[in-house]
Design a protein around this nucleic acid. Structure first.
Length: 108
DNA sequence: CTCTTGACTGAGG
DNA sequence: GCCTCAGCCAAGA
């Protein structure tokens, strides 16, 4: 119980379903939640995902840029986590983005 | 209720 | 491909 907001919980669930070594975009999650216009709201939910079992480091914007890295404990933490999963990151930009991209609306 | 901010996205030049 | 503008949704003051 105690759901702060159903919308947030939905975002967390999808983020948790992201396979290891893969990433997705805010819009992809929003689309999967039947709210393609709520991409910013998804990012907002990720901001509150701290302390939860949500791999928010696997969620980036549509360009594959680590726009949310500043919200982690360290500026390099997000990139470190991604590289730890075998994802190459260069200057906040995920390399081979479309290869590591995981779309919940299609894969799920 | 109104205004502001934000881990976004798409369209236009 | 890059830069700029506008639209959208959710939470907080």
């Amino acid at each position: 119980m105690s759901e702060s907001s159903n919308f947030f919980d939905k975002c967390y669930e999808v983020a948790r379903q992201i396979p290891y070594g893969r990433v997705t975009s805010y819009g992809a999650i929003a689309t999967y939640l039947a709210a393609p216009r709520s991409a910013r709201a998804v990012g907002y939910a990720m901001t509150a995902s701290h302390g939860k079992d949500v791999p928010a480091h696997r969620v980036v914007n549509r360009k594959g840029l680590l726009t949310g890295k500043h919200h982690f404990d360290g500026i390099n933490l997000m990139q470190q986590l991604l590289e730890n999963e075998g994802i190459q990151v260069k200057d906040n930009q995920i390399q081979n983005f479309e290869s590591v991209f995981w779309d919940p609306a299609k894969e799920l």
